[in-house]
Amino acid sequence: MLHVAHPVRPAVARPARRPLPVRVGWIVAAVVAVVLVAAASVAFGVRAVAWPDVVAGVLGDPGGIAAAAVQKRVPRTALALLVGAALGLSGAVMQGVTRNPLADPGILGVSSGASLAVVVGIAFFGLTSPAAYIWVAIAGAAVAAAFVYAVGSAGRGGATPLKLALAGAASSAAFSALISAVLLPRVDVMDQFRFWQVGGVGGADAARTAQVLPFLAVGALLALVSARGLDTVALGDDVAAGLGARVGRTRLLAAAGGVLLAGAATAAAGPIGFVGLAVPHLCRLLVGPRHRWLLPASALVGAVLLTAADVLGRLVARPAEVDVGIVTALLGAPVFIWIVRRSRVRAL
C-alpha cells in the first residue's frame, strides 16, 4: 500500500497576540499621533506658522499671510490623512485576502493598473477632471486585480501566495511598460501625467478631497465589515469552510474594499509605494494579527506615515518640495527590510 507524503509546511513566526490593554493603548497612541502630525502639517512648510496663526487660519480668519497659508494647507493635510489611511487599510486587507505578506496595491499591480487606466483616459479620451480620474482609476484597479488573480489561479494549486506575488510583479512591470509606450510619443500628456505619477498631495483642495471621500468611505466600510471573516480565512480555506465561514464572499467583499481604496487613493494622489506594504507589518507587531484590531490600526498608522512624509518633504528642500511618493520610497524600503528581518515573516 502506497503512502502519499504530505508536504510539511515551514514554521512561521507569527506575531503574538497582544493583551487588550496593550492593543487599546497602541490605538490611542495612534490617534494622538494622527492629531500631532495633522497639526504639524498645518504649521510647517516653506513658511513656518505660529500656533496663534494656525488657530486663526483653521477658524477661517481671512487676515494675514500666515492665516492664508494655513487655509491652503488644511485641504492638503486632510487629503494626506485620507490617502495614507486608505493605503494602509488596503495593504492590510490585500495581505489578509491573499495570505501573502508581500501583498500590497503596488506589488499586486493594482496601483499600476489604475495608473495605466488614467494614462489611457488622458491620452485617448481627453480626461482632465479629478472626478473622471477617480472612476477611471477604480476601473483600472479592478481590472488589474481580476487579471492578477486569474493569472495567479491558473495551473495546479490555485491562487497560492507565491503565484499571486509573481503574477502581480509581472503584471506591474507590464503595466508600467504600457504606460511608457503611451506616454513617449505624447509630450503634452507626459507633462500632465509626470507630476501625478510621482505621487503627492500638493495640489489638494476641498473639492478634490470631497470627490474622493465617498469612494474611500465605501471601501473602508467593506474592509472593516470583512475583518471577522479575514480572521477565519487566515486559518486556511478548508478550516474556514469547516467553521461555517463563506470564504468566497469574504474574499470578494474584502478584495472589493481593498481595490476601491487603492484605486481612489491612486486617483487622488498618484501611485504611492511602500505604505500599504510596510504599515500592516508594523501594526501586527503593535496590536497582533487579529483583523478587527489590525485594520483600524493600519488606517491610523498609514495616515500618520503619509502625512509625516509629506511634512518632511516640505522641510528638507526649502523653498522647494520633495513629493511624498519619493519620501515614502526612501523611508519605506529600509523600514520594511527591518520589519521582515525582525519578525521573519514567510506567510500569513
Rank of each mutant, 00 (worst) to 15 (best):
A145G: 05
I272R: 04
P15S: 14
V32T: 15
H6G: 13
L331I: 12
Q192S: 11
G168H: 11
V279I: 14
L79G: 08
L294S: 03
S129A: 13
A80D: 07
L285S: 09
A30K: 11
R76T: 00
L285C: 01
G263N: 05
S153F: 02
G60N: 01
F175W: 09
L235D: 10
A347G: 11
A139R: 12
V275L: 03
G152A: 11
G200I: 12
A207F: 05
A29M: 11
V35W: 12
R318L: 11
R14N: 13
T266W: 06
A48V: 12
D237M: 08
G244F: 03
G229K: 11
R73Q: 02
G91T: 13
G302K: 09
G236D: 05
V22H: 09
L222T: 12
L164K: 13
G242C: 07
Y149V: 07
L108P: 02
D238M: 07
R246V: 09
V327Q: 09
A227R: 12
L221A: 15
S343H: 11
A329H: 10
G25A: 07
L243I: 14
C283V: 02
G200F: 08
V70W: 00
A142K: 02
A13C: 07
V218G: 10
R47S: 10
A43I: 10
V212P: 08
V55Y: 08
A141I: 02
A167R: 02
V83T: 10
L184E: 12
A132Y: 01
A5V: 13
R186N: 15
G25R: 04
P319E: 06
L305W: 10
F274A: 03
A86V: 08
A165Y: 07
I65S: 14
V279W: 00
I138P: 03
G152S: 00
V74G: 01
N100Y: 09
G244V: 10
P62N: 04
G200W: 04
R318G: 00
A141E: 03
D205E: 05
F175T: 06
V28L: 13
I138D: 08
S41N: 13
T328L: 07
S112Y: 06
A269R: 10
A141W: 08
I272M: 04
G257H: 04
P105V: 11
V34R: 12
G229N: 11
V340Y: 02
W338S: 15
G332E: 03
A254V: 07
R156S: 13
D238K: 14
G140R: 00
Q197D: 12
A78N: 09
S115G: 15
L89T: 14
G64V: 09
V118T: 00
T250G: 00
D238I: 08
G248C: 01
A320F: 08
G332T: 03
S153L: 04
L221K: 10
V110P: 11
L183M: 13
A308D: 01
R251M: 01
A329S: 15
L82I: 09
